[in-house]
Amino acid sequence: MDIVAKTRDFMSQTGYMARFTGQLFTLGTKPPYEFKEFLVQCYIIGYRSLPLVALTGFIMGLVLTMQLRPSLVYYGVQSQLPVMVGIAIVREIGPVITALIFAGKIGSSIGAELGSMKVTEQIDAMEVSGTNPYKYLVATRVVAGTLMLPVLTMLADAISLFGAYIGVNISAVTSFKLFFMQILRTLEFGDVLPAFIKTFFFGFAVSIVGCYKGYNSNKGTRGVGNSANSAVVLSSVFIFIIDLLAVQVTAILGLN
């Protein structure tokens, strides 16, 4: 495929995806709403992701602390370890790593599920039964994903900080209260809020990409595999782009 054709394909894909996303604000906002399916998706996307997010969060905090400690000891500022780890986790590492884990688990799962439904004509069956599959399948998953990732990120942050506390106590002794008081005294509104807000965008991006890839899956099992794979890849790229934009916006607003 030459560069012109590739560019044209990229542009048309971008257009289709923009239109697909736009439908969420036109079709998705009209009643009747799919509350029951939304709650089911909140359970699947949120609750069932909790063990994985908790585990990775714990390891993230533990490893980060253990990796940072030698450098801080070298410069004689090991007392700043809780503060450094706390800010790193809450502002950046917690939201981004959780979003990437979320993309791997939920993005691929949505892509594969909807892709499989597409190739086996289940989406068509839903449509001919007079049910709008976009509202039932896409809107519910996107809204659930958008709302659940911030919750998961908060939990991951908390568990990660606990992991950091364990990491600190492997080489030294620090009380639980002192460790967390040191972090909480340092964290400011500008550290927490932008990080929290961007997780909504991460959740939205992962869910809408997963739905788009699955909903537009090509025929055949290879199409389903490609949908799941490209959902993870594309949503991961989107997470970094959104993160980059969030940093710029935060800087412009003077919250850095």
Partner: peptide, 13 residues
């Protein structure tokens, strides 16, 4: 209108 799909298209979940 009822529609019977060739592949049945039962919701497998």
């Amino acid at each position: 209108i009822g529609f019977l799909f060739q592949s049945n298209a039962l919701y497998d979940s």
